[in-house]
């Protein structure tokens, strides 16, 4: 296989890692005001993702860095072209991350309310905008002969793009609800499971329309297989949640997200950013890539170090595998009595 193809696949894997993992972080953040009914329950939700959200987020940083290294033209066109949505995502991630770190550091209701709002908004915005961005990448945007994006913000806000955003939003919310049902105990668990079924049905409708539309637009035989399997996984996941099998339900949305992203990349290949201005201006795995030497170096680095990353990230999930319920939340005021406890 060509190294450019290998790296296209690896970047797809990084985005799959990002959306399957941070997807449920986003879901937990968005559902905070819906599922939690008091402060202790809100703290339960924060703590379900507490030890892992930061590691989950690194996947997008590595995806960005790997795109820069392996497909510099793609990195340059994408990030300078999708400027304002990306800026919004960055701002959202900043306030969201700080909500995790700072919320418990002051015993004050206004302080907590502000950070809760930051977490919810900061999860909602990227969950929506990543979908809009990816739909537009797959559908193509106006790109000129210098590989420059020539559209505006409103070019990206087309019906297909917006539907893509709605799909990621609903999928991540469902994924988050499945995760909460799997990681908590007591009333929250049941509330989350009931909600995951409702959200899942909504997500399924939106996702099927979107995936069929994508398949009709740019699909290949392989993307069709991925999309059909993704839809099957989603339906199975919802069924498992309805039956009370929370582990399988979570696996269901996990696989759904992974296969949907894989399908989008398969529909994209061999383009990385098609141009709607002229096919000749499309960025492809070959005309946007780094040199063979750089790709070789990067392949070695990835081959040697990725197993370690997977190993220790997996270990973290093992260490913090237990369910969390309201009685696990320490009753002492977090800011004062346990100052220095972390």
């Amino acid at each position: 296989m060509e190294l450019t193809t290998v790296w296209f696949a690896l970047i797809a894997v990084l985005w799959i890692g990002y959306f399957t993992l941070e997807g449920f972080d986003f879901g937990v953040g968005m559902l905070l005001p819906v599922i939690a009914r008091n402060d202790t329950e809100r703290r339960v939700l924060y703590n379900t993702v507490g030890p892992v959200w930061d590691g989950n987020e690194v996947w997008v940083l590595v995806a960005g860095g790997a795109t820069f290294a392996a497909f510099p033209e793609w990195y340059a066109t994408l990030f300078s072209g999708f400027y304002l949505p990306l800026l919004l995502i960055l701002l959202a991630l900043i306030i969201r991350n700080l909500a995790f770190e700072y919320r418990a550091k002051k015993d004050d209701d206004t302080w907590r309310r502000n950070w809760d709002l930051s977490l919810t908004v900061g999860s909602f915005v990227p969950a929506l905008l990543w979908g809009v961005a990816f739909a537009n990448i797959v559908a193509g945007v106006p790109i000129d002969t210098h590989k420059e994006f020539t559209g505006t913000l409103f070019t990206l806000l087309n019906p297909y793009g917006l539907l893509g955003g709605v799909v990621t939003l609903l999928l991540f919310a469902t994924h988050g609800a499945m995760f909460i049902a799997l990681k908590t105990d007591g009333e929250i668990r049941h509330r989350a499971r009931a909600l995951s079924v409702q959200l899942g049905l909504g997500a399924a409708v939106a996702a099927v329309v979107f995936l069929v539309w994508t398949q009709a637009k740019t699909g290949s035989a392989s993307s069709a297989v991925a999309f059909v399997l993704a839809a099957a996984a989603l339906v199975s996941g919802i069924f498992a949640a309805w039956k009370g099998r929370e582990g399988w339900a979570f696996v269901g949305t996990f696989v759904t997200i992974a296969l949907s992203v894989a399908g989008l990349f398969l529909a994209l290949f061999p383009n990385v950013m098609p141009s709607t201005t002229s096919d000749a201006f499309s960025l492809t795995t070959t005309n946007a890539s780094a040199t063979g030497y750089t790709l070789t170096v990067m392949t070695w680095v990835a081959a040697v170090f990725t197993p370690f990353v997977l190993l220790y990230q997996g270990w973290t999930y093992w260490v913090f595998r237990k369910r969390i319920a309201t009685h696990h939340i320490p009753t002492t005021k977090p800011a004062l009595e346990t100052a220095g406890a972390r």
Binding site: G64, F68, A69, S80, A290, T294
Partner: peptide, 30 residues
Amino acid sequence: FGMNWSDYSRFVGDIFGAPLAIEGLLAFFL
């Protein structure tokens, strides 16, 4: 780099991108 310095990114990406990607893989995950 990609947002404000895209011509820079195109010009140096073959060299400059690698340490950035490696930083993510080796350092940020850790």
